[in-house]
Amino acid sequence: MTGTTNDSTVLKAIADLAPLWMPGCVVDTADRTVEVGWGRGSLQMSAVVGLGEIIDRCLQLPQQLWADQIEAWLRAVVAEGELATEEHRFGDVADRQRAMLLQRGWSARTAGPVADALIPFGDHFEVVVFICTGNDYRRLTVVRRSMLGLGDPDVPSPVQLTLDQIADLRPVAHDGFSVLAREDDPLVSMAIVDREKLMPQASIGMGVLVGVPRLSTVAFCPADVGQEVADRLAAYVAETYQGAADQCSQDLYWLQGDRMVQVPVTLATPPSVVLPAALLPTPRRTWLRHLWQQLFRR
């Protein structure tokens, strides 16, 4: 909507109001940017931030709500600058990027006035970027990513860094299915992204049934393993999700290569999986699955 009358109206509102709340900030309506400053004593810093995000947010609201939205966003941008300054004290920020696989919409439901840095991942998940500082994971926003220079092409990718962190994971057999887990490690959920290495069965034959009940736990089995094992997998996902501090998703998915679809699970106790017709056992499919299992054991 760049260049429309609505854009111009929002820009004028920002230019008029911003200096009232933050004396010294400079709004450039031509470049659609604002320069904000922060610091303590003689240590003063500033950054130029694009206004595209706050313009889009205002255009989704009645005009009488713009002022509050603009003020909240500007103050959040200053807070992001202060946080960026602090994060530099802990070493190379680029190498401390991490990414977590979360349910689609998690960021929108929990974010503040400034949007998170994220990558959509299919219809059901999103990859949200964080900065690892000590034992804490601080969600990275689009604004702070720009301030820290993390969007540059030569900067290490947070996704690749995260995949390196979980490269040593090995599946453990559990009641007919496999589990990838590491207690208190929220990066394990990214096994779905690194499925070619950590779940190679996802790209073979009918793929896998998979659940991500916790950020620290991924459970899966061959998609055509049959009703009994699928039900046990669904029960494990439901039980592991219940009450967990790092909940991710209580649903079950059919992952085949790059295709992921949700598989219905009844609310019965224990739960029962409503397998798609394509996954119902047939003599030929049972024989092929047995063959693949033999090959993997060699």
Rank of each mutant, 00 (worst) to 15 (best):
Q44P: 03
A47Q: 07
V48F: 05
V48D: 14
V49A: 07
L51N: 09
I55D: 06
L59T: 06
L65A: 15
D68V: 11
Q69D: 09
Q69G: 06
I70D: 00
I70V: 09
W73F: 14
L74C: 06
R75I: 00
E80G: 05
E80H: 12
A84C: 06
T85A: 15
E86T: 11
E86A: 13
E87A: 12
R89Y: 14
G91L: 03
D92Y: 13
D95R: 09
R96T: 06
Q97H: 07
A99Q: 11
A99V: 13
A99T: 14
L102G: 02
L102Y: 02
G105P: 03
R109G: 10
T110F: 12
A111T: 07
A111E: 14
G112A: 12
P113V: 09
D116A: 13
A117I: 03
A117W: 12
L118I: 09
I119W: 11
P120D: 06
G122N: 09
D123K: 10
D123G: 14
E126I: 07
V129N: 08
F130H: 14
I131E: 05
C132K: 13
C132F: 02
G134P: 12
R139H: 11
L140N: 02
V143K: 00
V143P: 00
R144V: 04
R145I: 08
R145F: 08
R145L: 09
M147E: 02
M147L: 15
M147Q: 10
L148G: 02
L150H: 08
L150F: 12
D152H: 15
D152S: 14
P153R: 13
V155S: 09
P156H: 06
P158L: 05
L161H: 06
L161T: 10
D164P: 00
I166G: 01
P171A: 01
V172P: 01
A173C: 12
H174K: 13
D175C: 13
G176F: 10
F177P: 03
F177Y: 12
S178E: 10
V179I: 10
L180A: 03
A181T: 11
